[in-house]
């Protein structure tokens, strides 16, 4: 099946970074950001996800939002691998500030310092923040 975007500049693979800095449930940003990430996977771009500041809470294990009448979308983070979205980065300092360790997270991530994150950000073509 040929999609319109596939006719565009051939081989135009860009580096997309999605930066998540907000906690889930209190606002909808985490959920709707995930929707963009899933769509971007269909475009065969070089996608990476960053979780920093309160965004690290999006990856916390044992989320049970049914208790507040909301949908549990946290399982989707575990499904990202199936969409070839495998570059998940977490800001180490944000984790420490919030008393979290890698064991608290529901997916495997790479922990980076803010400096390393800054360097990674510099390399991107498109940075979308939520």
């Amino acid at each position: 099946m040929s999609e319109p975007w596939e006719d565009e500049e051939e081989g135009a693979i860009k580096k997309f970074m999605f930066i998540n800095r907000k906690a889930p449930y209190g606002t909808i940003y985490a959920l709707e950001s995930l929707e963009v990430v899933l769509i971007s996977a269909a475009f065969d771009q070089d996608v990476s996800l960053v979780f920093s500041d309160d965004g690290v809470f999006q990856l916390k294990k044992d989320q049970d939002p049914e208790s507040i009448g909301m949908k549990n979308f946290s399982r989707t983070y575990r499904a990202l691998e199936g969409y070839d979205v495998e570059k998940l980065y977490v800001d180490k300092e944000s984790m420490e500030e919030r008393g979290l360790t890698e064991d608290d997270l529901l997916v495997d991530v790479e922990m980076l310092s803010k400096e390393e994150l800054g360097n990674l950000m510099n390399e991107q073509d498109v940075v979308l923040s939520f």
Binding site: P4, W5, E8, E9, A12, K14, F16, E35, V36, I39, S40, A42, F43, Q45, D125, V126, V127, L128
Partner: peptide, 15 residues
């Protein structure tokens, strides 16, 4: 659809 956002990212110089 959201594809329009990703497409805009691909086709533009800056977002």
């Amino acid at each position: 659809g959201l594809g329009q956002l990703v497409e805009a990212g691909i086709q533009s110089d800056r977002v």
